[in-house]
Computed example of a mutant assay.
Amino acid sequence: MGIDLPLIWLLIIGFGIMMYVITDGFDLGIGILFAFIPNRQHRDTMVNSVAPVWDGNETWLVLGGAGLMAAFPKAYAVVLSALYIPLLLMLAGLIWRGVSFEFRFKADEAHKAFWDKAFMLGSIVATFFQGVTLGAFIDGIPLDDSSYAVAGWITPFSFFTGIGTLIAYALLGVTWLILKTSGPLQQSMVRITRPITLALLASIAIVSFWTPLRHPDIAERWFSFPNLWFFLPVPFLVLLACFAIFRCLRGVPHAGPFVWSLLLIFLGYTGFVISVWPHIIPPDLTIYEAAAPVQSLGFTLVGALLIIPIILCYSAWSYYVFRGKTQDGYHE
């Protein structure tokens, strides 16, 4: 039996996207949370909690996009052709957020409020259109024509997944700040974690019912036998993660809420993979139909296996060096 190169590359791309969602998710979540924290000093502390690592987090987005282009060029072409507007808006939000991240520290008093709002807006726009892209992807991109509807991604479902992504990243951001801060700011984060968690649970429930109602093939996958027995633990694990977050918020929380929020996001990601497998472009294109030639897959795999450990090592080292609480812009 030969090596299944398309599957290996799908795992690599999926790993890169998941790492991006986790790491840049709490970065973007901090920008979203600016709407709830008007205090300038607290905002500085929030930003400084990710300042040493935020730009490295986006490496995973580059890995996922480059891997898709190298390993599944047809899927890359289809996605960028059909969803170029939301993807362009997402990138515009990421660029605007990056600019405001740096400028908000260097601006004079007259312009600091502007760059705070710019940072918040860039984070919201980038996150929302990531979710819109996800929703449009789940809805599927028909391949029976060489052209795609420019506004095909504008649907109630994709807009709702955009809102759900905002809530998910806000949960990552607020639990990250519980881990990295203390005092009044941490107490504020604890207070808003509860409603954000409940909002995310409601979003997950709505998407979990809405998706199979829109797509009978997904409904058959989840609710037919014997699949139902294998997938039944997923909703119970979601409820367990939410309960564990509430439990960890008692007393003086530290890493617990963030760890459980990571599990919650991972479960949502797992549900997405179960729903679309083995298609890389639902509902028609599988990973094997979209894969590059075997020679290309093997050649690029060598480079990926060399670079991924390097990314993991320098990311882990940066998080280790800047571990501890952030107090008034400094680590303890």
Rank of each mutant, 00 (worst) to 15 (best):
2 G>P: 14
4 D>R: 07
9 W>L: 02
10 L>C: 09
14 G>M: 05
14 G>H: 06
21 V>I: 15
25 G>Q: 08
29 G>T: 05
32 I>C: 02
38 P>V: 13
38 P>K: 11
39 N>S: 13
44 D>G: 04
45 T>V: 10
47 V>Y: 01
50 V>Y: 00
52 P>A: 12
53 V>D: 00
55 D>N: 09
56 G>K: 02
57 N>C: 03
61 L>S: 08
63 L>F: 12
66 A>H: 07
68 L>E: 05
70 A>H: 11
70 A>W: 08
74 K>Y: 13
75 A>L: 09
75 A>W: 06
79 V>L: 14
85 I>D: 01
86 P>T: 00
86 P>D: 00
91 L>N: 00
92 A>R: 00
94 L>W: 07
103 F>W: 09
105 F>W: 15
107 A>L: 05
120 M>H: 06
121 L>W: 11
123 S>K: 04
129 F>Q: 01
129 F>V: 02
131 G>P: 08
134 L>S: 04
136 A>V: 04
137 F>R: 10
137 F>D: 09
141 I>N: 01
142 P>M: 11
145 D>Y: 07
147 S>R: 14
149 A>F: 02
152 G>R: 06
154 I>D: 07
154 I>A: 15
156 P>N: 10
160 F>W: 08
160 F>E: 10
164 G>W: 00
165 T>R: 08
166 L>V: 10
168 A>S: 12
168 A>H: 00
171 L>Q: 02
175 T>W: 00
175 T>G: 02
177 L>D: 00
184 P>R: 04
188 S>V: 03
190 V>S: 01
194 R>N: 01
195 P>L: 05
196 I>A: 07
198 L>Y: 15
200 L>Q: 09
202 A>E: 14
204 I>V: 12
210 W>V: 14
212 P>S: 13
214 R>V: 03
214 R>E: 09
217 D>R: 10
218 I>F: 13
227 N>R: 13
228 L>G: 05
232 L>Y: 04
235 P>Q: 06
237 L>K: 06
238 V>A: 06
241 A>G: 10
244 A>G: 01
245 I>M: 04
247 R>V: 08
249 L>Y: 03
254 H>Y: 12
255 A>H: 11
256 G>P: 01
257 P>S: 12
259 V>W: 05
260 W>R: 04
260 W>E: 02
263 L>R: 09
263 L>S: 05
265 I>C: 00
268 G>D: 02
271 G>Y: 07
272 F>D: 02
275 S>D: 11
278 P>S: 11
281 I>A: 05
282 P>A: 06
283 P>G: 14
283 P>C: 03
304 A>G: 11
308 I>N: 03
313 C>P: 00
315 S>T: 15
316 A>L: 13
318 S>R: 15
319 Y>K: 14
319 Y>P: 06
328 D>L: 14
329 G>T: 09
330 Y>S: 14
332 E>S: 13
